[in-house]
Amino acid sequence: MGRNGSGKSTLSKVLAGHPAYTVTGGTVMYQGQNLLELVPEQRARLGLFLGFQYPVEIPGVSNLEFLRVATNARRQERGETELDTFAFEDLVTARLAVVQMDPAFLERSVNEGFSGGEKKRNEILQMALLEPVVAILDETDSGLDIDALRIVAGGVNQLASPGNATLLITHYQRLLDLITPDHVHVMAAGRILRSGGPELAHELERTGYDWVDQELALSEVG
């Protein structure tokens, strides 16, 4: 959690390998490797997933084909067999239930003309297919109405397992009413300023971020 501009989205993009960012120092260790030395697609194949705040529309590229190519890239990395069109359709049909998505969206171009809620459901569908080890969901709740929020949160809950971790970036307690976090971290000026349990999110909901500014100012003086 953290104010706008505190660096949450930047961190998520840097972890996923967005080409607009250059990392000038430090390392990110993931499964024994420095993540920063890997191209974005390799990070994804190893199980890192970024749920975009603004999922990109790709005209002309069928959603179904996109999902199949992506799923097979991850399967290949895990030593699993590639799925042909028919086998993949069975898999994707089963996974659609996770986000209660209409199969018609598979036939359309990736995210093209999707509503905000549909785009976010499509993100969670991708997560369901790619079975990431670490998923970072950047403001997955933004632009969602109450029903869509419930569906998306339900999808995230269904996908949670002891073998994976999910990092939610959010401003609002309402998402955390539906997904109970194990840990809450507050970010400011690119740093984790405070960490705690779910109660920290409740505190933020009550007090806002003013204390963060004060704490940040103090830490800079100190």
Binding site: A16, G17, H18, P19, V39, P40, E41, R43, A44, R45, F49, L50, F52, P55, V56, I58, F66, V69, A70, A73, R74, E77, V110, Q126, L130
Partner: peptide, 12 residues
């Protein structure tokens, strides 16, 4: 668009 596809494991 390229990055979105790459972030899903699709080679550049």
């Amino acid at each position: 668009e390229l990055f979105y596809l790459q972030s899903r494991g699709i080679a550049a």
